[in-house]
């Protein structure tokens, strides 16, 4: 039984695509057949971050319109087995994303994949609504600032009222919080909301805290999901996030400023 997971936020530029790429890659690394779909019609950049932009032939809208079949459009990742990418169209307009079309493609993907990750565009327009409509679970990506948290709250309301699960009266979409671009020093200074502040406002379980890190930009420019970058804070945080999603109970790292001694770092703890 395939699980559909939407990566969503309301606000743009908070790290949805970065999270989608690393989350999908991390699931595939752990042996799960995974596909990641770019719902950001017109602004595609998942393929850039995944480093497969030069292999795009057909896209999501081509499949919806019946102009190509899935096998032609799915891009197999070169680094990680079990991982496929379904890119968005850069040219077509968003109206092509119909509920029936999206459902048909998802149902076909369900036959072959265990996890279907939907990278949502920003906003609460059609593209975002379609990306979340069929979701079983949601990664709600938030930055530690008031406007981002407010938009995530809005998206949580939409998940609870306008998703297919809500409309059919089924069990609600399972919500996970991803707090991205977190800088503990700035939270300590009060320039940013703290982890606790965000949890108090949104009131959903915390799946992971991704630290603000220059490696993210470098790796996305290089077309490598940051989860594959050894020795990077952000990459390690995404790795933990995937493990937690799969049921491991791991403490949250990268949320405090306190300098750790060498031994403590060596032997973990906190």
């Amino acid at each position: 039984m395939a699980t559909v997971i939407v990566v969503t936020s309301g606000k743009g530029g908070v790290g949805k695509t970065t999270t989608s790429a690393s989350f999908a890659t991390g699931l595939a690394q752990r042996g799960y057949r995974t596909v990641v779909i770019d719902f950001d019609v017109g602004l595609r950049n998942l393929d850039l971050i995944m480093g497969c932009e030069r292999r795009v032939v057909y896209d999501f809208i081509n499949i919806i319109n019946g102009e190509a079949n899935l096998n032609q459009a799915l891009i197999r990742d070169k680094r990680v087995e079990n991982l496929h990418i379904l890119p968005a169209s850069q040219t077509r307009d968003k109206e092509a994303l119909t509920k029936e079309g999206v459902e048909r493609v998802l149902n076909e993907l369900r036959q072959n994949f265990e996890y279907i990750v939907c990278d949502s565009p920003a906003g609460i327009e059609r593209g975002a609504l379609m990306a979340l409509y069929f979701a079983d679970e949601a990664l709600v990506v938030t930055n530690p600032e008031v406007s981002s948290v407010r938009d995530s709250d809005r998206i949580l309301g939409i998940l609870a009222s306008r998703s297919r699960r809500a409309e059919q009266g089924e069990a609600p979409v399972k919500e996970h919080l991803v707090l991205a671009r977190y800088a503990p020093e700035r939270a300590d200074r009060g320039d940013m909301l703290s982890v606790e502040d965000v949890l108090e406002i949104l009131g959903i379980p915390l799946l992971g805290v991704i630290p603000e890190s220059p490696t993210v930009l470098q790796s996305s420019n290089a077309g490598v999901p940051v989860v594959l970058e050894d020795g990077s804070d952000a990459g390690a945080a995404y790795g933990d996030l995937v493990d937690r999603f799969l049921g491991k109970n791991l403490p949250h790292r990268f949320i405090t400023t306190q300098k750790k001694g060498f031994l403590k770092r060596l032997f973990g703890g906190g």
Partner: peptide, 27 residues
């Protein structure tokens, strides 16, 4: 039975409204 999130509105005509959760800013 759930929090009332930003952008949502809930109305109880003719009686009381009971919210088992938070009413967010913007709700």
């Amino acid at each position: 039975n759930h929090p009332v999130r930003s952008g949502q509105q809930v109305y109880a005509p003719d009686g009381d409204l009971i919210v088992l959760g938070t009413v967010s800013a913007g709700a």
